[in-house]
């Protein structure tokens, strides 16, 4: 009998029974009758070694910057502080201390950022979409231009790169719309 890992069914979230498995790479949940293919990796079965901190026994031992009672076993690659295994975090291929990671997060680098506001998308939508009901452009065109100015130096999409094509396009359309309104009002004023 095939005995697969006791993982939750991806659909109904109930733990898959041993008889749910057809073979090592497929099965079906007996409760929700979901057929599935399965691609396991070593991390599923392997036990990862977790290093435990050692107490500093001698006064000459180097101790952790954050835990003076623990012996230091690594050096932070960000700030050079001595760290015990508790404080050593392997992060983006480096050994860093929690403070350095917190600093990385606040500086909004690509490794840690969780979301981004796309000012170029907002500006372009504000410039283009109101054209369907053009009187709204009286308000939306200056707002779009404002978003272009505000978002010019803001970080943009992580994956699309730093192209400002959308911002430039939004700015051009917004300026044209504002120009059209100015021309219209001028024409009306002169007509009177």
């Amino acid at each position: 009998m095939i005995v697969g890992p006791a993982l939750p069914c991806p659909k109904c979230k109930r733990v898959l029974e041993s008889y749910s498995w057809h073979d090592a790479s497929s099965g079906s949940c007996r409760r929700c009758e979901t057929e599935f293919e399965f691609f396991p990796f070593p991390a599923l079965s392997a036990t990862r070694s977790i290093s435990t901190p050692q107490a500093a026994e001698l006064a000459a031992d180097s101790v952790c910057f954050f835990h003076v009672e623990n012996r230091a076993e690594a050096i932070c690659e960000g700030c050079g502080r001595l760290l015990c295994p508790v404080c050593t975090v392997k992060f983006t291929g480096q050994k860093l201390c929690p403070s350095c990671i917190a600093g990385t997060k606040s500086s909004d680098t690509s490794h840690t950022v969780r979301d981004r506001t796309l000012f170029d998308g907002i500006a372009l939508a504000l410039a283009l979409l109101p054209l369907l009901m053009w009187p709204f452009t009286l308000i939306t065109a200056p707002v779009a231009l404002g978003f272009v100015i505000f978002g010019w130096k803001k970080p943009c999409s992580l994956v699309r790169g730093r192209s400002r094509v959308r911002l430039v396009l939004a700015a051009v359309i917004a300026v044209l719309e504002i120009g059209a309104w100015v021309a219209g009002f001028t024409y009306l004023a002169l007509k009177r």
Binding site: P10, E35, E37, D115, L118
Partner: peptide
């Protein structure tokens, strides 16, 4: 959404398996 982007990261070394459900 076109106006915001959300990023979810999964470390390759932490991936245990893939399920492909029809």
């Amino acid at each position: 959404t076109g106006y915001t982007e959300n990023y979810s990261r999964l470390l390759l070394r932490d991936i245990q398996a893939f399920f492909v459900v029809k």
